[in-house]
Design a binder for these strands. Structure first.
Length: 594
DNA sequence: GCCGTTTTCGGCCCGACTGTTTTCAGTCG
């Protein structure tokens, strides 16, 4: 029984207690206990076994007994009882926006609704609107919520599939008959949302590789199984295709299946203009030249396509087309072919360029790891500095810090900094941008931080003009270092709030305010589509993990993918700077002007 | 269910918004 599993069980209990309509403070107690357990730095099982749980604030007699049962037997009878009182589908109803425990309880008790399908039917037959507390507007909203969920079901967030994708590649790479293997498709291009995974590999024994692939762990169902192409459904409903080709075909296949379609079309047009032809099978000279040297290879079997130009890898294909190599992230036909022709493909930022990061939370607000643990994890991963930016006081829901607690945290940071060598904690805040664009702290308090992340967390339902004005007002405050998650979107869950990003980017350029690339996989905000233009205007990017747990510090790696997709170079990303230069940049920002 | 102390039960995080209602409950951040 790991700590994380125990935490999950406590949270399940809290949710089920809510559904049962128990005293809300009781379910909160379970959530508090889960948080307390999370920030436990000692080994969970030994703490329970040695009876040290009673020293943990937030875990009392009742929950302690349940954790002891869990560690001793691996079971939790209280949770099992609770689970018996609701069908599994009822819990899933909570994921519909606007439905909380009270409403779900009514739907289950009064209409016997057990899952989303039954809920949809009940809304369509207007049985829901007749319930007390419900109405026609609620029915509409529920139906819209179900519809949204359904349309999202075919899509997956990059961060949710990266583990599976890497696992599949590793499995294939370990196979003795596999020569080369790579992810292809939108995943390889680093798209924030993917529909499926595409794998390309080369082998002289495709049948053996295919057999291994369809039986690999993580495969739930085989849709198609052939010699060169197989399709499977992975756990979690993600579709995955594998293509196996002879090794000499590999570069062309990889290029083709990486796409994008638009990029491929641009490359083909270019090939045609040069008297060549490009397809997934190769790059060919026109048929009339097929008697020239080197025509004995497999291309001679496809005489109508002419002689294949041999390329050992993708870079050679680009070179034969008179182009510089184009990294997969840029292959969207958004100017990369033209840039490659002029040899102006930027040298994109790499995740190993990052020297530090800002915008991390701790247990002081809504984070699940302590300041100490975050600092240790950052040092272990080789960072030179880590910025702590817990929530400000208006974010009650996130246990935001008031001025007094800010002072305490700053004191702790000062103390810890005296102990570090070659590493520094920076004291920051994720300060709420209030409804009128004022900030949640006075200027004198803001001045006490090393830096300020200004973010919108409430009041999303406003006009674009109002929201834009609000954010610009905040950015004009000289103490605001950077704008946090500029659109507030949650991928596949919540649309961005309305905001005029052109004006925000212009304002960032004028005031020298950095814009965050929030690397939390749910956000990836600001979107990569805006970065190229922002860079051209001189806006600096800062890649932040928005980490609420030590293991989330690694999110910056996904953020770097997105930055690359946005054409950003190392010099465009502030946190590639070493500590000394970052400190200088922070002072310069304070000094006014960019 | 936990905590604190006011030693045995009362308080536990706040405010805005929506849709329902006709004065407020539920949800969300």
């Amino acid at each position: 029984m790991t700590k994380d599993e125990a935490v999950a069980k406590l949270e399940q209990i809290a949710t089920l207690l809510d559904l049962r309509g128990e005293n809300p403070f009781k379910s909160r107690a379970y959530r508090t206990a889960a948080r307390a357990l999370e920030s436990l730095s000692e080994d969970f099982e030994s703490v329970v076994r040695e009876g040290k749980l009673d020293q943990v604030k937030g875990i009392g007699e009742g929950i302690r007994a349940k954790l002891q049962e869990l560690v001793a037997t691996g079971r939790l009878t209280y949770l099992e009882e609770l689970e018996r009182s609701f069908p599994a589908g009822v819990v899933a109803l909570l994921e519909i926006p606007g439905l909380g425990p009270k409403k779900v309880k009514i739907l289950w008790e009064q209409l016997g609704i057990r899952d989303l399908e039954e809920l949809e039917a009940a809304c369509r037959s207007h049985r829901v609107g007749k319930l007390s507390g419900f109405g026609s507007k609620t029915e509409e909203n529920i139906l819209a919520g179900i519809e949204q969920r359904r349309s999202y079901a075919a899509y997956h967030r990059y961060g949710d599939v990266i583990g599976l994708a890497e696992h599949l590649v590793e499995q294939l790479r370990a196979h003795p008959d596999v020569v080369r293997v790579s992810m292809a498709g939108s995943f390889r291009r680093g798209k924030e949302i993917v529909r499926d995974l595409d794998l390309v590999c080369s082998s002289a024994k495709p049948a053996a590789v295919m057999a291994a692939f369809i039986s690999s762990s993580g495969v739930q169902r085989v849709v198609n199984h052939g010699e060169t192409k197989s399709s499977v459904i992975l756990e979690g409903g993600l579709a995955c295709d594998l293509r196996v080709v002879p090794d000499e075909d590999y570069p062309y296949a990889l290029l083709h299946f990486t796409g994008s379609k638009e990029h491929n079309i641009a490359l083909r047009q270019r090939a045609i203009a040069q008297g060549k032809k490009l397809s997934e099978w190769g790059l060919f000279r026109e048929a009339r030249s097929r008697f020239s040297a080197g025509s004995e290879d497999t291309a001679s079997e496809r005489e109508s396509e002419g002689e294949r130009i041999r390329c050992r890898d993708e870079a050679e294909i680009y070179a034969k087309l008179g182009l510089a190599y184009i990294p997969p992230e840029l292959r969207e036909n958004l100017g990369e072919v033209e840039a490659a022709e002029r040899n102006e493909i930027p040298r994109l930022v790499e995740w190993t360029d990052l020297r530090g990061t800002f915008h991390c939370h701790t247990t002081a607000s809504d984070g699940h790891s302590t300041l100490k643990a975050m600092a240790e994890a950052a040092q272990e991963s080789g960072l030179e500095y880590l910025g702590i930016a817990d929530h400000s006081k208006s974010s009650f829901q996130a246990n935001g810090l008031d001025e007094e607690r800010v002072a305490l945290q700053q004191e702790e940071i000062r103390k810890r900094n005296k102990e570090f060598r070659g590493f520094r904690l920076l004291s920051g805040t994720e300060c709420d941008i209030l409804r009128d664009g004022r900030l949640d702290f006075s200027d004198s308090v803001l001045a006490s931080f090393d830096y300020v992340v200004a973010s919108v967390h409430a009041g999303f339902s406003t006009s674009e003009e109002e929201m834009t004005r609000r954010i610009i007002r905040a950015m004009e405050n000289p103490y605001v270092t950077m704008l946090g998650h500029p659109t507030g979107r949650l991928l596949l869950m919540r649309k961005p709030y309305p905001v005029n990003l052109e004006k925000i980017i212009d304002c960032a350029a004028e005031t020298g305010t950095w814009i965050e690339l929030n690397a939390q996989p749910l956000r990836l905000d600001l979107d990569w589509r805006w970065w190229h233009a922002a860079r051209e205007k001189g806006v600096r990017c800062v890649i932040n993990p928005d980490a609420h747990h030590v293991r989330e510090l690694g999110f910056v790696r996904i953020g770097v993918n997105i930055a690359r997709k946005g054409w950003l170079r190392r010099e465009d990303v502030i946190n590639t700077l070493p500590l000394k230069l970052v400190e200088k940049a922070l002072r310069k920002k304070r000094g006014g002007g960019g």
